[in-house]
């Protein structure tokens, strides 16, 4: 018969300024997905052909590739 508990439970956890939650979260969603696509690629190991390309360059500090002359 005590209504106090109910009142407490029903109280809104966040008072205050209406902040168009739909809009905000959607904007976050865009930013999150952008970074997710980007970071996924960032964290993947580089493909072998690029690495071997770079290794060939490393062996030839003179900046010339073998087809040079």
């Amino acid at each position: 018969m005590n209504n106090d508990d109910k009142d407490v439970k029903g109280a809104p956890p966040l008072p205050g300024p209406a902040m168009a939650p739909g809009r905000d979260s959607k904007e976050d969603w865009i930013g999150r997905q952008l970074r997710r696509v980007f970071d996924d690629a960032l964290n993947e190991p580089l493909p072998d052909d690029i690495m071997s390309l770079l290794e060939r360059i490393g062996e030839q500090p003179g900046a010339h590739t073998k087809s040079g002359e």
């Binding site: 696509v37 980007f38 690629a41 960032l42 964290n43 580089l46 052909d49 690029i50 390309l53 770079l54």
Partner: peptide, 28 residues
Amino acid sequence: ALPMLRAFARSLSGNRDRADDLVQETVM
């Protein structure tokens, strides 16, 4: 710089293989 470059290429082109080709071409 390569991981950043690749991530950019992939985000721009939307395609893994094409992105890697772009990175390779860019390196050259």
